[in-house]
């Protein structure tokens, strides 16, 4: 028994969160982390008890909307708290209040490091992102397989049927039917060829490798325009001489693709303008649509829809670029990405 008490005590002392236990306003016990905090940053216990008391009292008062509600009973009271540091970055914490003994008014205050919690959030976000990327991969494969099956396999199949039919026209010695049939097969094969080329372009634009970013963006815009009827204008300035790394080119291309697909699918845009402009030390890509727009703040945290944007952001950041989305309900969306260039 005595041994286990010493273990508990050891754990209490070594936990990274600073824990204070009070009776009324008197400090009873505090752990190592709390003592260091007090010593290093002149943290006054009177201040945190006062802070906490006012919040707790406010939450337990009749005027509070949530008085007696279940959620409040279940949730521990936590308030954000910043500790000023001389000649340094202020530390931010969450102050968590938990009652230990109501009769004697004994309670503990725990200072949880905000940085740590943010890191946990970031990890969760990362995990969601990985999940999203995987799902997007799978979706892409599904789409490709469907396209292969519906369009190309069907095209080849009807050409085979056409050739079979050709044999009967030969055996019936009907030159007119023969000519008609060859024309039909030719047209089917042409359509299939066109479809294959289109799919190849969708998967990875060969234009990007051979003719550069602006040509690839123009080809992409043309294809989307053909598929949707939306006006897409591409303006590329001073980019001909530019030597961009393959990574940057690919990311810019994918951002343009994602931004335009978003505008078409979700925003019901009528017009999209795309600007690729090289400045002295940076290259910027801007995709502007006149669609329905959305509330950016709502989409910054994760809610399922915004992961595409988050993914773009991550890709840009990994190449030292900046990424920005400006949008308002009813007034379109502007997606901007810039990368430094030598």
């Amino acid at each position: 028994m005595l041994e286990s008490v010493s273990w508990v005590e050891k754990n209490f002392n070594e936990t990274p969160d600073a824990i204070f236990i009070f009776r009324d306003d008197q400090l009873l016990v505090s752990n190592h982390a709390a003592q260091t905090l007090q010593a290093d940053y002149e943290l006054s216990t009177a201040y945190i008890t006062k802070l906490m008391n006012s919040v707790v009292r406010q939450q337990h008062s009749d005027t509070n909307d949530c008085f007696n509600c279940v959620v409040l009973d279940m949730a521990k009271t936590a308030i954000p708290f910043t500790l000023p540091v001389k000649n340094g970055h202020p530390l931010s914490f969450f102050l968590v209040y938990s009652e230990l003994d109501t009769a004697q008014n004994v309670y503990s205050l725990t200072l949880k490091s905000n940085d740590l919690m943010q890191r946990v959030d970031q990890l969760a976000q990362q995990r969601k992102l990985v999940q999203y990327v995987n799902r997007a991969h799978e979706e892409e494969r599904k789409r490709l397989s469907q396209d292969l099956h519906d369009s190309i396999a069907q095209g080849v199949y009807s050409s085979i049927m056409g050739v079979r039919h050709l044999e009967t026209t030969v055996s019936q010695a009907d030159p007119e039917a023969f000519a008609r049939q060859t024309k039909l097969i030719e047209s089917q094969l042409y359509a299939t060829l066109q479809e294959i080329k289109g799919m190849a372009l969708d998967i990875r634009p060969s234009v990007l490798d051979s003719f550069g970013l602006s040509a690839a963006l123009k080809a992409l815009a043309k294809r989307l325009e053909e598929n949707t009827g939306i006006d897409i204008t591409v303006v590329a300035r001073d980019t001909a001489e530019l030597k961009l790394s393959e990574d940057v080119q690919t990311v810019l291309y994918r951002i343009a693709q994602e931004a335009m697909t978003n505008a078409i699918k979700h925003a019901e845009a009528n017009e999209i303008n795309l600007f690729l402009v090289a400045h002295e030390h940076e290259i910027s890509l801007e995709v502007i649509d006149d669609g329905s727009g959305f509330d950016v703040k709502q989409h910054v945290s994760f809610n399922g829809h915004s992961l595409g944007l988050l993914n773009m952001n991550e890709r840009v950041k990994s190449l030292h670029g900046t990424f920005q989305i400006k949008s308002e309900k009813g007034s379109g969306t502007t997606v901007t990405a810039t990368f430094p260039i030598a």
Binding site: S151, G155, A191, E195, E225, E226, T228, G229
Partner: peptide
């Protein structure tokens, strides 16, 4: 007028 259709789809 801008649309170009894809055969089969």
């Amino acid at each position: 007028r801008k649309i170009i259709l894809r055969s089969g789809i």
